[in-house]
């Protein structure tokens, strides 16, 4: 039972990790917590659904259609609603993201109604590995998440755009002084977060179905970002997996009343011991 629980927890944690990654990317670059991340995820899973059902694309095409749409949606939201607020205190920007979340929810309901829709590209019987069964959706969720994380780490370490984004996160003024187009990079970051939200939405859709309120998973993933120091990409991944596994294992072995609050208890515990999160690294400055 524990191995089954562990696999379920890792798969759930991968979803949390992808959503948390969206939070982290935007926060790292712009210091804004995007409360619309869950709704971007929801909207993009609807786009994938529309690709499959309305336009009759095959799943791979619908998947990339949704990811590109997620990128464009993220970039568009930044350009229309966030960029005009640059320079203002952080609170109006955060409120704006909450407003975006509500608008996306209403637009989705208007187009696709509130009825849950099915998007299940990984259907089929579970695979049996020794005494452990793993469903195709969990297997693909874990595989796709790890591939994505690997590609992200390559992107941030070796690509020019990735290096520019890291530079902005490290030193905004210095980046501007050295000619990095900061606004364009902000826009790109929102696009990237939208794209990764799309992947998370498509992976979670077979488990919880698509409906306008599925974006609430974004708030559940928030502790993952906090656990991982809210600015660290590996931290978001580890935080997500720790959260998913702890939630599932707590559900198996602790009283049922504890299951839902256990991730939060864990978060409090971590914050008490390490308020800056697990993956926070202190900068050393020469004086």
């Amino acid at each position: 039972m524990i191995i089954d629980g562990l696999i379920n927890g890792i798969a759930l944690g991968c979803i949390y990790a992808l959503v948390a990654l969206g939070f982290v990317l935007i926060y790292k670059a712009t210091h804004v917590i995007n409360f619309a991340q869950g709704e971007i995820m929801m909207f993009c899973s609807y786009i994938c659904y529309a690709g499959s059902t309305t336009f009759h694309f095959n799943f791979i095409l619908s998947f990339f259609f949704a990811v590109i749409a997620g990128f464009l949606l993220g970039a568009l939201l930044e350009r229309l609603f966030i960029r005009p607020l640059i320079g203002y205190p952080i609170l109006p920007v955060v409120i704006a993201t909450i407003g975006i979340a509500m608008v996306l929810q209403s637009v989705a309901a208007l187009i696709w109604t509130f009825e849950p829709q099915k998007l299940d590209p990984f259907s089929g019987s579970p695979y049996q590995l020794w005494k452990v069964s793993i469903s195709p959706v969990h297997l693909w969720t874990i595989i796709i998440t790890f591939i994505l994380i690997f590609l992200f780490s390559l992107f941030f370490r070796h690509s020019l755009v990735g290096i520019k984004l890291r530079a902005i996160a490290e030193d905004l003024i210095g980046s501007m002084a050295s000619g990095i187009p900061v606004r364009r990079m902000y826009n790109f970051t929102w696009g990237l977060a939208g794209a990764i939200g799309a992947v998370a939405g498509i992976l979670v859709a077979p488990v919880i179905f698509i409906h306008p309120h599925m974006g609430s998973i974004g708030l559940r993933a928030l502790p993952a970002a906090v656990l991982g120091s809210f600015g660290s990409i590996p931290g978001a991944v580890v935080g997500g997996i720790v959260l998913g596994v702890s939630e599932t294992i707590a559900g198996l072995y602790l009283p049922k009343e504890i299951k839902d609050v256990f991730p939060w208890l864990l978060l409090f515990l971590v914050l008490l011991i390490r308020p800056e999160g697990i993956f926070y690294t202190y900068e050393q400055k020469k004086v």
Binding site: N8, P116, K259
Partner: peptide, 30 residues
């Protein structure tokens, strides 16, 4: 479970571990 639950794996695994023969779940359709 709470309405906000998104994952039922632990409940199902616990029921399986207790060798449940017949399961009734009066819950919303999704």
């Amino acid at each position: 479970y709470k309405r906000s639950a998104i994952d039922f794996s632990s409940q199902v695994l616990r029921l399986k571990a207790k060798n449940v023969d017949a399961l009734f779940f009066p819950v919303i359709s999704s």
